[in-house]
Nucleic acid binder design. Structure first.
Length: 422
DNA sequence: CTTCCACAGGAAGGTCTGGCGG
DNA sequence: CCGCCAGACCTTCCTGTGGAAG
């Protein structure tokens, strides 16, 4: 993001000025997904269920392995981490040896790194730690067994986003680790937001990992309200929220499969928008702004990471739309027209052009990503085609596209003279 | 009612990359 | 290290079609 400094502003001590300006937050962190609240509203049942499975660890026995399923923002990670904390606390209190290892498999995604991470978690001496690479995998596995046995007690391993793990060998090895242990026990908790994940698993792993299954249902609008109220109390200064802001954020997030993360983002960004607008109260207006911003940010990110050919097609659509607006025409943009402009662009940028068949597919891809809308319409005698529109801010997308090197010398590009029918 | 445009979109096959077992 | 295969990415060829115009 760039900071523009107007000609007339006094730009000495910018940060000082911003710091002094009375913000709306007390603790911004409390609205971020990583924040761990003291109480998790509406997850009492889930906490209880998981706790009653893992409580066996406090009795020194092996808890069943658990598989937890639930959509994003339903509190899976929060609940498991919460339980982990409690388990460790209670373990200390009753002097039972408990180890708790949390790993996100999206970051630690190979068998080697997984085993290495768990083992290192149990090793205190830096010198003894297993390096990022270099050891044979089975040696790491042996070391892991040795360490767990040395530690004794019960080790609970949380594998978050377990579906991101490459290959199921790692899961297979971990699930039968108890057979190799003398005086320690291991329990695995797998977390996933993909219910179909277990279907592709080795049946042995499947039955072992899924000794217990838990499903986290999405929050409904009123539950989201409670969560937002709780966090707003910690994060925001008192009396700056309009009464209808939290219900609105909750309702919007509830529409999107009850995602608490989404609701919190919405509220946080609303507050940020209000803060930046110099407002002293957060109103519905800022929620709308925030929603808009989230959507635009999403689109910008998608556009930025588009393959070159798709960018080229998108640029063709944008140029056509811009031209039409300049000429005061508001006709429909069709696949054929886009293809012509696209081919011309390819010539200018010296890239190979795809066939119209392929371009048509890429256009519907762009449609599915929500960058453009492409509806099939019939113009009767003049054929059947797609009516293509841009769904959001043209100029901002153009800016992103111009970041791309291949569009560098296209700044003065003009659509070749052609009169539009109808 | 029929015609006919300008595509939509299915099917099949080619090329290339990257992972994986031997 | 090598051959094999799956899947991504494209092309070629094709049949199907909504509805304004005739």
């Amino acid at each position: 993001m760039s900071i523009l400094i107007g000609k007339n502003t006094v730009n000495s001590d910018i940060f000082g000025h911003l710091l002094k300006s009375d913000g709306l937050f007390i603790d911004r962190e409390a609205m971020r997904p990583s924040y761990m609240p003291e109480i998790l509203p509406h997850r009492g049942k889930e906490i209880n269920d998981l706790a009653s499975i893992l409580v066996t660890a406090l009795r020194g026995e092996t808890p069943s392995n658990v598989f937890i399923y639930g959509k994003t923002g339903t509190g899976k990670t929060a609940v498991t981490k919460f339980i982990g904390k409690e388990l460790l606390r209670k373990g200390l209190e009753t002097s039972k040896k408990i180890n708790f290892v949390y790993l996100n498999c999206e970051i630690v995604d190979t068998q080697y790194r997984l085993l290495q991470n768990i083992t290192n978690h149990l090793i205190n001496e830096w010198s003894e730690r297993i390096p990022f690479t270099g050891w044979p995998t089975d040696e790491v596995y042996a070391k892991l067994i040795q360490m767990i046995d040395k530690e004794g007690g019960v080790t609970v391993i949380i594998l978050d986003e377990v579906d991101k793990l490459k290959g199921d060998e790692a899961l297979y090895n971990l699930s039968r680790i108890n057979g190799n242990l003398q005086n320690a026990k291991v329990s695995i908790v797998g977390i996933s937001n993909d219910l179909k994940f277990t279907e592709f698993l080795d049946p042995r792993v499947k039955s072992s990992l899924g000794e217990e299954n838990m499903i986290f249902p999405p929050y409904d609008a009123s539950q989201l309200q409670d969560i937002l109220k709780q966090r707003a109390k910690i994060a925001l200064k008192p009396n700056i929220l309009d009464d209808d802001v939290i219900p609105l954020c909750s309702a919007l997030a509830a529409q999107e499969h009850g995602d608490a993360r989404r609701a919190l983002d919405l509220l946080r960004i609303s507050a940020e928008q209000a803060e930046r607008g110099g407002a002293t109260k957060i109103t519905k207006k800022f929620v709308r702004l925030a929603q808009n911003k989230i959507e635009i940010d999403r689109i910008m990110e998608v556009v930025r990471t588009l393959p070159t050919q798709s960018k080229q097609i998108l640029l063709a659509v944008l140029l056509r739309e811009q031209q039409d607006r300049k000429d005061g025409i508001s006709g429909v943009i069709t696949t054929g027209e886009v293809y012509e402009i696209y081919k011309d662009l390819c010539r200018k940028t010296r890239t190979d052009s795809l066939t119209q068949r392929r371009v048509a597919d890429l256009i519907s891809e762009l449609d599915m990503l929500g960058i453009i809308t492409a509806r099939v319409i019939s113009k009767g005698r003049y054929g059947r085609t797609r009516e293509i529109r841009i769904s959001s801010s043209t100029s901002e997308i153009l800016n992103i596209l111009h970041e791309d090197d291949i569009f560098k010398d296209l700044t003065n590009y003009k659509i070749r003279g052609q009169t539009k029918l109808l």
